[in-house]
């Protein structure tokens, strides 16, 4: 898919109620516009309202959260559930773990995808398409297939409860290689040849010509691999035993077994801690996130 912005393509527009249109048609258009906005407000409210409800709940006391009827705004705003979750459940550590895993994973994915994408896009060599197809076909394989063999392999390497167990098995992405190849095939070869005539090495061309021109594809890949990594649950669940090595999703899920009664105050506060960095990041780069969907369009 090509990178298209979420605006109507140039040329041609809906015939609007111009000079000849009578008032009835214009009124109808206005009613339709009003209904459109009303429906969109409902859509937006269902998405955002539920999240705001969660954020507000994290500032309520444990008893207020389960009060009937439920309160919307916290009656007596308090940080007690944050204090509790940080004291009892090492959520600060989980947060750092998630960062220590996500950042290197994303950087390695960006590097490996871009340099392999460059090779597949701009070099000719025997069996190129065969190799590429084999790599791409791994996208069809559900993670459940490799789960147990990887568990056996990584355990035998002695990597259980380490950061590399969460980084190395995800640091190359077939999807990323596919995406960057597609993108780099669109880069003009003349630019690369100009560098070659000047005697530049392939590494130099990659570093100084190809990478800077691929920023839009790389940022889309960075966003999606970061989200996938931050969200990752099944693999850490399998390979992490020690509490201090848990990532945020894992720490959050373990809250369920922490007490016999559901502790919604902790569930929601933990969820907010997990979500906030992503939402802040998203708020600054919303259009990049949304455009990333149309650019990647394949996998999340």
């Amino acid at each position: 898919m090509t990178d298209i912005s979420l605006d109507r393509r140039a040329g041609g527009s809906l015939p609007s109620g111009g000079a000849g249109a009578d008032a009835r048609i214009r009124l109808r258009e206005q009613v339709i516009a009003l209904v459109t906005h009303l429906l969109l407000v409902i859509f937006a409210f269902i998405a955002f309202g539920a999240m705001m409800w969660m954020v507000l709940a994290s500032f309520k006391s444990a008893s207020e959260i389960i009060a009937k009827p439920p309160t919307f705004l916290p009656e007596a705003p308090t940080l007690e559930s944050y204090a509790l979750i940080l004291r009892e459940q090492a959520f600060g550590r989980f947060f750092l773990n998630s960062i220590f895993v996500a950042l290197p994973s994303v950087l390695l994915i960006l590097f490996s995808s871009s340099i392999a994408g460059f090779v597949f896009a701009k070099f000719d060599f025997p069996a190129k398409e065969v190799i590429f197809t084999i790599i791409l076909s791994t996208l069809m394989v559900p993670p459940a297939v490799t789960l147990l063999p990887l568990f056996r392999l990584v355990s035998r390497l002695g990597w259980a409860d380490t950061y590399q167990a969460l980084i190395i098995p995800v640091c190359v992405s077939a999807f990323g290689i596919f995406l960057l190849r597609q993108f780099m095939e669109g880069l003009p070869s003349e630019l690369l040849d100009a560098g070659r005539i000047d005697g530049a090495s392939n590494w130099w061309i990659y570093r100084h010509i190809v990478l800077p021109l691929s920023v839009s594809a790389l940022s889309a890949l960075a966003i999606f691999s970061f989200l996938a990594n931050w969200d990752s649950y099944l693999w850490p669940l399998v390979i992490i035993y020690e509490e201090k090595m848990r990532t945020l999703p894992l720490g959050l899920a373990y809250l369920l077994g922490w007490s016999s009664r559901p502790r919604y105050d902790l569930f929601l506060t933990g969820a907010v801690i997990t979500v906030v960095p992503v939402v802040v990041f998203y708020s600054f780069f919303q259009s990049r996130f949304v455009r990333g969907v149309t650019l990647t369009g394949l996998k999340y």
């Binding site: 979420l6 969109l40 859509f43 937006a44 409210f45 998405a47 955002f48 539920a50 999240m51 969660m54 709940a57 989200l227 931050w230 969200d231 649950y233 945020l248 999703p249 959050l252 899920a253 809250l255 559901p262 919604y264 569930f267 929601l268 933990g270 969820a271 907010v272 997990t274 979500v275 992503v278 939402v279 998203y282 708020s283 919303q286 996130f289 949304v290 999340y300």
Partner: peptide, 22 residues
């Protein structure tokens, strides 16, 4: 509108599961 509607897409599944449990 997209800003609000797309937001659930970016947040963690475990967090969404927690929210819906409640």
């Amino acid at each position: 509108y997209l800003f609000f509607i797309f937001m659930p897409v970016v947040i963690s599944q475990v967090a969404v599961a927690m929210l819906f449990l409640w």
